[in-house]
Design a protein around this nucleic acid. Structure first.
Length: 471
RNA sequence: GUCCCGUUCGUCUAGGGGUCUAGGACACCGCCCUUUCACGGCGGCAACACGGGUUCAAAUCCCGUACGGGACGCCA
């Protein structure tokens, strides 16, 4: 049997990170088994549908690198097929017309709730004849659920889950306007598309029993189910904007790499021994239902960050440069030219291990792509008459240095320290850091000078001297 | 209210009766490295929700309690 998994997002205008994990797991399971991974847009609710909302989801999947094997289908487009199934069930007496109004149903639920009974439809129209039907009254079609006994859903994550059938009421499969409900549509589409494994959030676990009623009524084989535990916010409630990014696009905007997001999401609810750093390729090899955790997990942004830091260091420098471009614009208002781009590329190794996100990396990149003409408070403290003397000595020595590379630069700075700063290297380097970067924290300076080059280094030192003498 | 699911360090998790004085990762603390901040290295803190069973033996199996999450729509 070929494995076919699916990701069925409803077009809400964003891709929630929890849905991203569901998509990931479906993707991994399909790839692990040489199967197919398909996308189906759950747009039976027309009010919510929009093409832009669909694009957002596709963009997110693309960004994550979760490639799918079909042209995303619209559930709405299969409407006629869903209706056909509902009609078939009706003809066979497995479904029936219910003339209750929404108001009547609401009252029914309210009273049942206040009496502490099971909140369910009371089967009022289940056994009525057509002759009892009121004229000109809209009706819905409900499917007949078993009245007694119990049902079991064998779940690959949760194990066998059992429920008494009296908990299941006769759900609506066709609305009074003749359109199919989600419950009907998923089942029919999953069946028609040959979905072998339904992997979804465990908020759907209860729905599974109801959906199985349709499978049974149609005599269809059921898919294998795997219900994933939820992802929660740090308070234990729903993960919300209050905690930080929640949509895939927001994580992208916040400067996370897709491989970090995938790795984090994978480990959130799935484990393989002590493995922590797992590439998507390895994940495809390793992924199984056995490793899925049963309990809900709280989202930890700090751990994601640390993973992101790891993947930034691993990332190819040219790719980082490309990814960084929009962040340079938005964070420090810089557009690279040939000189600064090449400098940044050369300096990338030195700065990338200092950043946890692309946002931070943009700030780290600053010293390589802007002129340094302003100094922050910490830097200004380093720029005084004492350091001016050191700068002048440094300048003289640097001018004559022909081999402007790490080791000679270090030797030169150490000599300068011996001569002018009581052999304290820090007394040379801290002011130099202020001059070269405009602040008091930076990557290692010998490398930075090498990357900046002789001309730029000398200019920055001279600028610092000018600054001191002006003030 | 009814039903379903869950509960190991702060967080993510390893663990599927003895190898657990419970392992790893992130976070945190300390030390080292060091021109700053990071990185890195080393070390430390820190958990089996509770109560009953079953068993020679339970984090692991069973039951109950508590707590948390989820579902009870002509939403998906």
């Amino acid at each position: 049997m070929t494995v076919i998994t699916r990701f069925p997002p409803s077009p809400t205008g964003m891709m929630h990170i929890g849905n991203a994990r569901t998509a990931l797991f479906n993707y991994l399971y399909a790839r692990h088994n040489d199967g197919k991974f398909v996308i189906r847009i759950e747009d039976t609710d027309r009010a919510r549908h929009s093409d832009e909302a669909v694009d957002v989801i596709i963009d997110s999947l693309n960004w994550l690198g979760l490639d799918f094997d079909n042209t995303p289908t619209s559930q709405y487009a299969n409407k006629d097929r869903h209706i056909e199934v509902a009609q078939e069930l009706l003809t066979e007496g497995k479904a029936y017309k219910c003339y209750c109004s929404p108001e009547e149903l609401q009252e029914m639920r309210d009273s049942m709730k206040s009496e502490g009974r099971i909140v369910a439809y009371n089967n009022k129209w289940r056994d009525k004849n057509d002759s009892d039907a009121p004229a000109d009254t809209p009706y819905v079609i409900r499917i007949k659920s078993p009245l007694d006994g119990h049902s079991v859903v064998p779940d690959s994550v949760q194990g066998d889950v059992k429920v008494e059938n009296k908990q299941l009421d006769d759900m609506i499969i066709l609305r009074s306007d003749g359109t199919p409900t989600y419950m009907l549509a998923v089942v029919v589409d999953d069946y028609d598309m040959g979905i072998s494994h339904v992997i979804r959030g465990d908020d759907h676990l209860n729905n599974t029993f109801r959906q199985n009623v349709i499978y049974d009524a149609m005599g269809w084989d059921k898919p294998t189910y795997a219900h994933l535990p939820m992802i929660l916010g740090d308070g234990g409630g729903k993960l919300s904007k209050r905690h930080g990014a929640v949509s895939v696009d927001e994580f992208k905007q916040a400067g996370y790499l897709p491989e970090a997001v995938n790795n984090y999401l994978l480990r959130l609810g799935w484990g393989h021994g002590d493995d922590e750093i797992i590439s998507i390729e390895q994940a495809i090899k390793l992924f199984d239902f056995k490793g899925i955790t049963k309990s809900a997990a709280k989202f930890d942004y700090t751990k994601l960050e640390s993973l992101n830091a790891h993947y930034i260091v691993e990332a190819d420098n040219q790719r980082l440069l490309d990814l960084l471009t929009p962040f340079l614009k938005s964070e420090i208002d810089v557009e690279l030219n040939e000189t600064t781009a090449s400098r940044l590329l050369n300096g990338m190794n030195g700065i990338k291990e200092r950043a946890k996100t692309l946002v931070q990396l943009a700030h780290e990149a600053r010293l390589y792509c802007t002129d340094i003409t302003e100094y922050d408070d910490k830097a200004q403290k380093q720029l005084n008459t004492d350091s001016a003397i050191i700068f002048k000595g440094l300048l003289e020595n640097l001018k004559t240095l022909s081999d402007f590379n790490h080791d000679p630069l270090e030797a030169l700075c150490r000599d300068t320290a011996t001569a002018l700063a009581d052999d304290k290297l820090g007394k040379v380097m801290m002011p130099l850091r202020a001059a070269l970067t405009g602040t008091d924290k930076s990557p290692a300076l010998f490398e930075a000078m090498e990357v900046l080059g002789k001309d730029e280094t000398l200019i920055r030192i001279q600028n610092a001297i000018d600054f001191i003498e002006k003030s």
